[in-house]
């Protein structure tokens, strides 16, 4: 299995020179099996660039199939949806899979709302030319999409819940725990630790530098050290710090990585937009 980060930023897309090495796009991750099956997680602004890349493949001919997992519907995780080019080609089949938001309305109604005529000239999901299905999954369920086994868990994210994913393909496993804040940040919930049990890579919310966390407790995000505790307890082989704060420049992220790496034996790196990595 290969993985590529297309967007690693939390909350807000950041442009400018200070964000070039890690990248300023909001969350989007692509997974590829050895056989070429593809799965995306989240549709932040990073999805726009990925969408253009996909158009050089079967997606330009209306023959593309793509499952997309959503962690939740906060805008930084869906704002790339109206600009994801494979949606505009008739014949493509795209599945959007996620939980119903734990607040407000259903997943489908929420995405409809994003494309409501006030907000978007698309005027609704029905105007996407591709075949789009919105599929809701319950927390704690396991299901298969072509090439991948997926297990979900609901984790607390401020006043709502987000969905964490455990994904296995080609004998390798990753866990995605973005947008999470445990009630006691130094004692992560068993549901999160179990989801990340023995994974080859854990991608974890690291929105705040450890020293900034006290001021931002209750905002729904983790300090860098939270991912470390999950990784250590779960026996994860590697930890990717993810969902970087829009205030975190490249140099600040470097600093967080070196301080986080110094406190654990688990190999740590900060997720960065760029090339495919082998899991």
């Amino acid at each position: 299995m290969k993985l590529r980060f297309w967007g690693v930023r939390g909350s807000f897309a950041m442009s400018g020179r200070e964000f070039l090495r890690y990248g300023g796009n909001t969350t989007c991750v692509e997974l590829l099996t050895d056989a070429g099956e593809r799965l995306l997680i989240d549709l932040g602004t990073g999805a726009t660039e990925l969408g253009k890349t996909l158009m050089s493949r079967e997606f330009s001919k209306g023959a593309g199939n793509l499952p997309i997992l959503l962690s939740h519907t906060h805008l930084d995780h869906i704002q790339g949806l109206p600009f994801f080019t494979p949606f505009f080609i008739r014949g493509n089949t795209i599945r959007i899979i996620g939980a119903n938001p734990s607040v407000g309305s259903t997943l489908e109604a929420t995405l409809q709302n994003q494309l409501a005529p006030h907000y978007s000239p698309l005027n609704g999901l029905e105007n996407l030319a591709a075949g789009v299905s919105i599929e809701t999954v319950a927390a704690g369920s396991t299901f298969e999409v072509p090439g991948f086994m997926v297990t979900t868990a609901a984790v607390p994210h401020g006043s709502m819940w987000s969905t964490g994913y455990r994904i296995t393909a080609d004998g390798k496993t990753i866990a995605y725990l973005s947008d999470v804040e445990y009630p006691n940040i130094d004692d992560p919930l068993p549901v999160a630790v179990n989801l990340a049990r023995d994974v080859d890579l854990l991608i974890h919310d690291a929105m705040h530098a450890d020293e900034d966390y006290e001021l931002r407790r209750g905002w729904g995000h983790s300090p860098a050290r939270a991912g470390v505790v999950v990784a250590e307890r779960a026996g994860a082989k590697k930890l990717a710090l993810f969902h970087h704060s829009p205030d975190a420049t490249d140099d600040m992220i470097d600093e967080v990585v070196s301080r986080t790496a110094a406190r654990t034996a688990v190999p740590v790196f900060a997720a960065a937009e760029g090339s495919y990595v082998d899991i």
Partner: peptide, 10 residues
């Protein structure tokens, strides 16, 4: 349309 981070827009 949408924000575009990256080296091509600095």
């Amino acid at each position: 349309s949408y924000p575009v981070p990256g080296a091509a827009t600095v």
